[in-house]
């Protein structure tokens, strides 16, 4: 554990809790992509199956359980409790265009051919692009609520901090995992436009709206 990794995890946790807080407080999931939330739930489910097979640390297991619970909770709020507020007309990104290539790639570029390993690799690839329906939704509606912007910023920062963590681990442990690194870089690049808008608008107290 290093400071970048810890900040990355906390940023990720903050993002997930911010989203739940926003939905619960406003009693609405307007502006949130249910498809992105569904993809993240698939990501966590595929990746954290190792909860049953390997133990790393209490911290590790607790965080995995929190991420899983929160993502299923978010789906419950979006597709059941506050379903009437879900803006599905603007959430029109075709997620099979993300799931199928991620699945195919996880059979092609993978360390070891076992079910757990392929599921883990699939989760890494899918996570890299899972935010696309949400970003597509923001671009279609042309705006995002401030709290949604904070959510996206925290979620994007998490993988950027992980990149610093991987650089640090390369120097201290002399090890690189190219699958996570390349996927992490793609994931972070997808947020760049948003980061720019966040810094130039939201941090100056303005609402995030596209020109």
């Amino acid at each position: 554990m290093n400071i970048f990794r810890l900040c990355g995890d906390l940023s990720h946790l903050l993002a997930i809790l911010l989203l739940l807080f926003k939905i619960w407080k406003t009693r609405s999931c307007a502006g949130i992509s249910g498809k992105t939330q569904l993809l993240f739930t698939i990501v966590y489910t595929a990746r954290y199956l190792d909860l049953f097979t390997s133990f790393v640390s209490v911290y590790n297991s607790v965080m995995k359980i929190v991420f899983l619970t929160a993502s299923y909770g978010t789906l419950y709020l979006m597709f059941y409790k506050f379903k009437p507020t879900y803006d599905h007309n603007h959430d029109s990104f075709r997620i099979l265009y993300l799931i199928v290539p991620a699945l195919v790639l996880s059979f092609i570029i993978v360390h070891v051919y076992t079910v757990m390993e392929i599921l883990w690799t699939f989760s890494i690839y899918l996570e890299a692009v899972a935010i696309m329906p949400q970003l597509f939704m923001v671009s279609r509606t042309g705006e995002a609520e401030t709290i949604t912007s904070h959510y996206l910023f925290a979620l994007g920062s998490y993988r950027a901090l992980y990149i610093l963590n991987w650089i640090y681990r390369y120097y201290t442990e002399d090890f690189l995992d190219w699958i996570t690194i390349m996927a992490g870089i793609v994931q972070t690049i997808l947020y760049c436009d948003f980061f720019y808008l966040y810094i130039t608008k939201v941090l100056k107290g303005k609402r995030l709206s596209l020109p």
Partner: peptide, 10 residues
């Protein structure tokens, strides 16, 4: 088993 090293991450 070197590539398992990063699987302590979330």
């Amino acid at each position: 088993e070197g590539h398992y090293i990063f699987k302590d991450e979330l």
